[in-house]
Design a protein around this nucleic acid. Structure first.
Lengths: 333, 333
DNA sequence: GCAGACGGAGCAAACGTTTGCCGTGCGGCG
DNA sequence: CGCCGCACGGCAAACGTTTGCTCCGTCTGC
């Protein structure tokens, strides 16, 4: 059926050497492009290796070379929606360095984290990518290998990190609303205990100034809260012609409720979200204008940085902040 | 705080042996619980190892023992929402076997898949967990190690697999509606080219019989389609008192549109979804009755099965089907 | 024609474990 | 008192690579 043999059980470098009529050292050099060999020999060995379906054993290779071409992806949070794009971006960047990714989901359990780190240490991963759900800083890990934080910052200001600009995200939304001439902006966001909510709220206050109407409303990161917040605002008699929401879910709740009460969106009230989560933003009517935190880009940059550290390259900035991007849709135009 | 150097750079088994005053072989036996040693010696070695922070090098261990305590998680689809719970479940099951998980996201690209499989082979993973977005069967991989398919079936009927029961999921929803006395059921679902949509549609037809109103309506897996489908149904004059949707997104679109047109849900029309995706189901008004495919359970069972295969245990059923579970909420009561 | 240089390939020592086998005491039993 | 057996623990050979050093032959320059 397939000309390629049925997955040869275990073809070692010695088998290639024998088949090619050279020594194992020569095979190694031929396949790795090291040493000094005749081009003809090199090609002959490569051809033989290919024919036999030889794949060098990573364990042995790693044992002697020191590198395992493997990194650990440590997440404090169980894998959530935010982590997928980061993971994907990181994978992309690491793939060019032939690196594989081992998952380590600590589930916020210190004992579990200890155990996983031990496992990663035993496996001699070349480096660690650390991330988490919340953007609340976490204590730095004490390990003797390169570590890059992605999305969730470390408390260590000197550590390597690729972060999102929470404040800029809020500012982009506010500026957009202001540019549309909206002058009575309501800010609905998540729990005050979340750093994200705090940062964004302060940024909104600074950017909107007196155009911010009433106090910032803290609640849950849910559609339900978005809907209820609108009811509360209307009941309190607060006049507003724009809602700057702290998340797409809150924004969608607001849009839904406004529409339901026959307030035109965006005519009467313009609404913005943050996250640009397609499932929510595109399903809303009208579709949500939102700020994309570019998580994929964060993952990619973090992966790139980790790769640079592992391979001993100079890292220009140890602390990169990825700029968010405003995505304009029907809820504001 | 790099002054603390808790992670000893490289403490090998020889260091432990020297510190404990025994040979390396003895240390190995003491730590692995093999060989025959005095209990006193064993404890002394263990204590010494702990004190020095010794962690056995997985590369060397794997090289000689054959096992790497690592499995590959291969997904044809880029990591999507469905894969997270599966991955989490699998991790849980594999953790008890001390197995680490290496990610391999093929992105539906054959070349990429080849490359990743080669990498996994080089790393001598002990087994493979294969999954994908759609439940459309895929060609079996030709690798010389245990393989278990999770969620997405293989075309190989003899292969190991843990699958969801698409048809039963649909049947549960229909039976529930029938038990509520609904006799004019509308079925709105995804694209006809998707096996899931097909299977579920046929199951609905069988379970509802003449209580199925009109033809099955195929569209997208989106809220937008759910809304539009309701408009189409109403425009066509079809009378219905229940909607059995093929996904939560479609169900939510339907609920939203019905409510908007002043049709009472569930009073006038009861609505069911499939997936039990909290983000959608809990945000709807009323909250959606939905069928949970129990993806976490699928992942767990698959991980367990792979572990059994790797450790040479008997696997009772090579093909497990996980029963879905009906979650009743406001959209039907 | 000879010496030195250099290109090209082989040799063997690592890398850090596990594991089967062997040696050595000691105790018990005859 | 002597022998046998057994309980412990050491020894060294794997596992499959990489890599520096060595060695051989040929070419070049004088």
């Amino acid at each position: 059926m397939s000309s390629t043999r049925p997955t040869s059980q275990a073809v070692r470098i010695a088998d290639v050497a024998r088949a090619a009529g050279v020594s194992v050292g020569t095979v190694s050099k031929a396949l790795n492009g090291t040493g000094s060999l005749r081009e003809e020999t090199r090609r002959h060995v490569q051809e033989t290796a290919r024919r036999l379906g030889f794949v060098a054993d990573a364990r042995a290779r790693g044992l002697v070379s020191g590198r395992t071409y493997t990194v650990g992806f440590v997440t404090t949070d169980s894998f959530g929606r935010f982590l997928l794009p980061i993971l994907r971006g990181a994978e992309d960047a690491l793939a060019v360095g032939q690196m594989a990714v081992i998952l380590a989901d600590t589930r916020d359990d210190p004992a579990r984290e200890q155990h996983l780190l031990r496992s990663l240490r035993a496996r001699h991963v070349d480096g660690l990518l650390v991330t988490g759900r919340s953007t609340d800083p976490r204590e730095p890990l004490t390990v003797d290998m390169p570590v890059v934080h992605a999305f969730s910052p470390s408390t260590d200001p000197a550590g390597y990190a690729v972060l999102s600009d929470e404040e800029e995200a809020a500012v982009l939304a506010v500026r957009h609303l202001l540019s549309l001439g909206r002058e009575r902006i309501l800010h609905l966001t998540g729990p005050a205990r979340h750093r994200s909510a705090q940062l964004r709220a302060r940024a909104v206050e600074r950017a909107a100034g007196e155009r911010l109407t009433g106090a910032v409303q803290h609640g849950e990161w849910s559609e339900e809260w978005g809907r209820r917040a609108i009811d509360l605002a209307l009941a309190s008699g607060t006049a507003f012609n724009a809602v700057c929401a702290g998340s797409d879910q809150i924004a969608r709740g607001a849009v839904d409720r406004l529409r339901e009460l026959d307030h035109d969106v965006p005519g009467e009230v313009a609404v913005t979200g943050i996250d640009d989560w397609d499932v929510i933003a595109l399903a809303a009517r009208p579709q949500l204008t939102s700020v994309d935190l570019c998580l994929g880009e964060i993952g990619r940059r973090a992966g790139q940085m980790l790769l640079d550290l592992i391979e001993g390259r100079e890292v220009a900035e140890p602390r990169v902040v990825v700029a968010p991007r405003l995505q304009v849709r029907g809820s504001t135009v």
